[in-house]
C-alpha cells in the first residue's frame, strides 16, 4: 500500500477525533513516530500514533489552528 493511503487513514482518524469534540492535549515525538494525545470535554482521552510525514504535518496544522483560534 502506498504511503499516501497510510496518510489518508491517519488524516481521517485525526479529523474524526476533532469532529467528536476532542482537542490536542499533548504530542510526543520519538523514534516510533508521533503520539498525539487528545481529550474531550468529558475528560475522555485517546492517543493516536502517527507515522507518516504528511500525517505529522497535518496534526501540526491542526495544533496551530487550535492555538490560534482556541478551538478546532
Amino acid at each position: 500500500m502506498s504511503e499516501y493511503q497510510d496518510f489518508l487513514q491517519e488524516r481521517d482518524r485525526l479529523d474524526f477525533m476533532i469532529q467528536q469534540g476532542y482537542s490536542i492535549k499533548n504530542i510526543i515525538e520519538n523514534l516510533s513516530g508521533a503520539f498525539v494525545e487528545l481529550e474531550n470535554k468529558e475528560g475522555e482521552k485517546e492517543t493516536l500514533q502517527i507515522l507518516t510525514p504528511d500525517g505529522r504535518k497535518y496534526f501540526s496544522v491542526l495544533l496551530l489552528k487550535q492555538q490560534k483560534t482556541g478551538a478546532l
Binding site: 492535549k25 499533548n26 504530542i27 515525538e29 504535518k57 496544522v61 495544533l63 496551530l64 492555538q67
Partner: peptide, 18 residues
C-alpha cells in the same frame, strides 16, 4: 489544501503545548 507552516512555527507550537 493546508495553510503555510514552517518548521520553526511547528516547533514553537509543540513547545507551547508541552
Amino acid at each position: 489544501g493546508l495553510p503555510p507552516m514552517t518548521w520553526n512555527e511547528r516547533q514553537a507550537a509543540l513547545g507551547i503545548l508541552a
